[in-house]
């Protein structure tokens, strides 16, 4: 008699993985919470988070989008203006420190910085540099737009049942004097790089953890019932500012994020972790879900991840709500909005 004898098949590599086709690997997630159609779900994070919102929507779940495109706008133009990409127009929130920053603007009375970038005669928001296809007409318009997003971000938090957040990066760029963080290095998608002002910081475990906890605590302070589902983006870094090979830097970064997600979900009853990172990146799946550049996730991989998400819910809690009918996600062919891609483009220049 030993403690392993009564464990389920999923606990053993041989029965869970080695003796199966990779497509038959199941029970990869043991969800803490039942998600039903009535639940309001927010999605934020790095590029990969965009798939989660679309998949929820396609399956009839209540993907909460407090900041909507104007009525009558075509779907193509709504995407062009970054409506319906995340729950509000925050653009990608790559790091836990950026999540903390948005949360403090929305819920802690912290004033968003006044910095604007110029692009010809237009103005870019340093915190969402590509949110408007042609930039803003005036700084005032930019501030009003950002304030709208901050208000909507707060409204969503107060209303939601679930907050899904995808951790993407540890590498970050900070304004040295004012201590705020940019989602992208100034000078890449906008702004002008100033080495005396713009400081690179590769965040370590404790900092990533502290920022995530601070954000969660603020959100829970505004909404006691809200629960979190964390994921880690399986998309490798487009570029690293460390002196390491990008593959090594990617592994280091994802390992930190994965460890943080694990620690927070293990220690907090209102936080769960969904293993999209493992489904795409684990050797079990032989890299089959990456595009030929071995960075972007192909549509088969996205569907496989999201099918697992819903199947694991069903396995544990029974059939999905009747009205949450499955239909093919129509977003698979949509372009993912990922400013980080620009870094890859720079290398080609």
């Amino acid at each position: 008699m030993n403690p392993y004898e009564d464990l389920p098949q999923s606990a053993f590599w041989k029965t869970a993985v080695a003796n199966r086709s990779m497509f038959d690997v199941d029970e990869i997630w043991n969800p803490k919470f039942r998600i039903q159609k009535k639940h309001k779900i927010l999605t934020y994070g790095s590029c990969f988070a965009q798939h989660i919102g679309r998949a929820l929507d396609a399956r009839g779940f209540n993907w909460l989008r407090p900041e909507q495109a104007p009525r009558g706008m075509s779907a193509a133009n709504a995407t062009r203006f970054n409506y319906g990409i995340f729950s509000t127009r925050t653009a990608n929130i790559y790091t836990t420190s950026l999540l903390r920053q948005w949360t403090e603007w929305a819920l802690a009375g912290v004033e968003a910085p006044g910095e604007v970038w110029t692009h010809g005669d237009r103005y870019l928001d340093p915190f969402r540099p590509r949110i408007e296809p042609d930039g803003f007409e005036t700084p005032e318009e930019l501030y009003q737009s950002r304030s709208q997003t901050i208000r909507s971000f707060a409204e969503g938090i107060k209303e939601a049942d679930f907050f899904v957040f995808t951790l993407g990066l540890t590498e970050s760029w900070i304004n040295k004097d004012l201590s705020y963080e940019y989602p992208m290095c100034p000078g890449t998608v906008g702004g002008v790089f100033d080495e005396s002002q713009h400081i690179f910081q590769n965040q370590q475990f404790q900092k990533v953890l502290n920022n995530l906890i601070r954000a969660i605590d603020l959100i829970r302070g505004a909404n006691q019932k809200i629960k979190f589902i964390l994921t880690v983006s399986p998309v490798p870094l487009a570029a690293t500012m460390t002196d390491r090979h990008v593959a090594v830097a990617t592994m280091a970064s994802k390992s930190v994020l994965r460890a943080v997600a694990d620690q927070v979900s293990a220690n907090r009853p209102n936080v769960d972790y969904f293993p999209s990172y493992e489904i795409i990146s684990s050797p079990i799946f032989k890299g089959a879900f990456f595009e030929p550049n071995q960075r972007q996730v192909n549509p088969v991989g996205v569907n496989f991840v999201m099918d697992n998400f819903f199947r694991c819910q069903e396995d544990k809690f029974g059939p999905l709500s009747p009205s949450a009918e499955k239909k093919a996600p129509d977003g698979d062919n949509l372009e993912i909005v990922c400013e980080e891609e620009i870094l890859g483009a720079f290398q080609n220049a």
């Binding site: 900041e67 203006f81 408007e132 803003f136 007409e137």
Partner: peptide, 23 residues
């Protein structure tokens, strides 16, 4: 021909011009 419902959300001028064009 349709009317436009601006709602109480703030939209940039470029965004409003785009939706007017769509409408």
């Amino acid at each position: 021909s349709r009317n436009y419902w601006p709602g109480d959300t703030f939209y940039s001028r470029s965004c409003v011009e785009t939706v007017i064009d769509d409408l």
